[in-house]
């Protein structure tokens, strides 16, 4: 677990075989953890490279641990065509929006920097994304899709919901994780059940780490 978390040592997966997880949850999460082996099906070729670069900007991940395969998680969702039950009328359907959006990002990048989005450095990528977020771009590759809307209604919700549905993300933010049949008993401030993560207060990192290793 990396240094940018207050919950070092905590791994929600350690609880997999405790009463906090039931059979159906284990099956669901096991399946999610196979995403690392997923081969792109919808965002393929150039789009795949753009998507991966985009993911590193939206959710930068620490280098000292295996990364959550965010691009793969999104591509799996696109392959299954799992929508949200509503769509802003100005946006095309899920897959099409992503196809156009990734393509347009690359086009914007080539237009402005002469290189594909994946070949930009971090700063340039982030810069470009800020322009997209604020609707300050107009490459014909957007094909009428409002860039800002794509960013706020597709990029952010889709990527953030995929990342924070991953157990590694739960460990990072100190979320208790799955909780059935065992829920919680200690409900008031600053109390944790023994199966919840310990937050490291300044100066107590080592103790918190030790206790987190024991959380079950």
């Amino acid at each position: 677990m990396s240094a940018d978390t207050r919950y070092r040592g905590y791994d929600v997966l350690d609880k997999r075989d405790t009463p906090s997880w039931d059979a159906v949850t284990r099956a669901v999460i096991d399946e999610r953890l196979t995403a690392a082996d997923h081969l792109p099906q919808v965002a393929t070729g150039a789009a795949w490279r753009v998507l991966r670069a985009l993911c590193t900007c939206i959710v930068p991940q620490p280098a000292d641990r295996p990364a959550v395969p965010l691009a793969a998680l999104l591509d799996r969702r696109l392959a299954a065509n799992r929508g949200d039950g509503f769509r802003d009328a100005r946006l095309p359907p899920l897959r099409e929006a992503w196809r156009i959006g990734l393509d347009a990002l690359d086009a914007e990048s080539r237009h402005g920097h002469g290189r594909g989005f994946a070949d930009l450095d971090d700063e340039a990528r982030i810069d470009l994304l800020h322009r997209v977020q604020h609707g300050a771009c107009a490459d014909p590759a957007w094909r009428g899709m409002p860039p800002a809307l794509f960013f706020s209604h597709r990029v952010l919700p889709d990527l953030l919901s995929a990342y924070y549905a991953h157990p590694q993300a739960w460990s990072e933010i100190g979320f208790g994780g799955p909780a059935n049949p065992r829920g919680y008993v200690r409900m008031v401030a600053n109390r944790r059940d023994p199966w919840e993560p310990v937050e490291a207060r300044p100066g107590e990192e080592a103790r918190a780490y030790r206790e987190n290793r024991r959380v079950r």
């Binding site: 009463p19 059935n180 829920g183």
Partner: peptide
Amino acid sequence: RQGGWRNWSQNLFA
């Protein structure tokens, strides 16, 4: 209760 005695660490309290 949910989980019964196997879930003692919760159910003894709750």
